[in-house]
């Protein structure tokens, strides 16, 4: 059990490292999906069955589909492994963070016996009911935000600039077009 857990942990870390080490973005998304899948197995082995299922379906499924969709639109440009700050500094910052975090957690890690706890559904819907409400609002806000971000406003620039000028030169009042295409252009 412990050996299997350790092997899966190493595989997960390897997938995570290769996820941003990969040259192509699509390969990076696939490594991330592998990392999510192994993480869900680890959670299942830890006894967190509900969260393992959710992580497998959302983390390895939905998010990967979103990544592939976005990369297919944006184009799979080969992202070279260039760094925005010097790599030794980034490595030192990461290592210091890990060492501090590990020093604080591993030394005081004592597994307590399982306390008498309510079931998962009771905890989720009754004790953490406010969280669920916040999540619902967050999802709606995200949907509205996505619709706003992904909507394309195609404004016919030349027509819009030239048509009123011609009308004014001819001495006629500018009549705004009321067609559906014009309404879309205005939007």
């Amino acid at each position: 059990m412990s050996f299997l857990f350790a092997a899966l942990t190493v595989a997960m870390l390897l997938c995570a490292f290769l996820a941003f080490r990969a040259r192509h973005l699509i390969v990076s998304a696939l490594w991330l999906a592998g990392c999510s899948a192994i993480l869900s197995i680890l959670m299942y082995l830890l006894g967190a069955y509900w969260i393992a299922v959710i992580e497998l379906s959302v983390g390895a499924g939905l998010v990967t589909v979103l990544f592939v969709f976005a990369i297919s639109i944006a184009g799979d440009e080969s992202a070279e492994f260039r760094s925005s700050i010097p790599r030794p500094i980034a490595l030192i910052i990461s290592l210091v963070s890990i060492i501090l975090l590990g020093f604080m957690t591993i030394s005081s890690l004592i597994a307590l016996p399982p306390a008498t706890e309510a079931t998962f559904s009771e905890v989720l819907w009754q004790q953490r009911g406010l969280d669920m409400l916040v999540q619902s609002g967050l999802l709606f806000a995200a949907v509205v935000g996505i619709l706003g971000l992904l909507s394309e406003a195609k404004v016919p620039v030349e027509e819009k600039k030239t048509a009123p000028a011609k009308e004014l030169q001819a001495g006629r009042p500018v009549v705004k077009p009321a067609t559906a295409a014009a309404r879309e252009a205005k939007a």
């Binding site: 967190a48 969260i51 004592i110 307590l112 306390a115 706890e117 079931t119 905890v123 969280d131």
Partner: peptide, 20 residues
């Protein structure tokens, strides 16, 4: 959650983290 004996609480918080 496993260490503190409250695994269900940890799972419900993890659901929130997954959604966000």
């Amino acid at each position: 959650g496993l260490a503190s004996g409250k695994l269900n609480l940890g799972q419900s918080l993890a659901v929130m983290v997954i959604v966000v």
